[in-house]
Amino acid sequence: MFSRQFDLAVKLGVGALGLVVVVVFCVVYFSVRNSVADVGYRPTQPVPFSHKLHAGELHVSCQYCHAGVEESAHSPIPSSQTCMNCHLLVKNDSPKLAMVRESYDKGTPIEWVRIHKLPDYSHFNHSRHIRAQIDCKSCHGPIEEMGVVSQFSSLSMSWCLDCHRSPDKHIVGARPISGVFTGKLEKVSNLLDSTFLFKPIPAQVDYAGVTDIVVPSFGATESKLPAHKIDGIPHPKYAGYGPENCSTCHY
């Protein structure tokens, strides 16, 4: 019916079109998904809480409300009790706080909208990173300047690995405002600045005499870290390079 040349042209055309679609999809998927898709997510929260006011102006430490982040894999959203520690008295008739008062009286949680979300197959442990003396700002950005909190980092795998491989380029050292325990006395004159420069200590992992755990190990090694706790105080771990084996996050 059709000439051979036309048939070939149609086949080539369809093939080329398919290739273009695949390439465009891959480029868009891997670029957008990994670097920008989640950044800037700024949902409307049920209570118009301002981190800019509480952390930035009133200098309430991050850990005052997100207490337990040193001990827990997730950073706890504060209970209504925590809000009412102050708001029992401060602005106790504000209509913006009606939902907090109702939650406090009835014992029903406020349904905050979750911003930072990892896929369910990857695990992040806050306590491990806080004890490595990594400031909240490293991942969450300048929260104390945000009236409404938005996602600052992409939380993509490449973003995680960038930091695990060269933490000195990405990590903000512990600031007094974040309440990260560094194990040494600090000046408290500059609340919002880092009091020390984050320097990874390469000697943290003694590669001599360390055998691979599994084969293939993807670099898995047994690191000689300080004890989990000393006398009941969450001990800060030395700032070191992050592990890169798969089972660190995917278990």
Binding site: V28, V36, V39, T44, Y121
Partner: peptide, 25 residues
């Protein structure tokens, strides 16, 4: 610029998940 993440914008909509394989278990 957009694909490399130089330009971002705020959105109240949840991020789009292109391939939500096992993201929500």
């Amino acid at each position: 610029l957009i694909l490399s993440g130089r330009i971002t914008w705020f959105s109240t909509d949840p991020p789009v998940e292109f391939v939500p394989n096992m993201d929500h278990q």
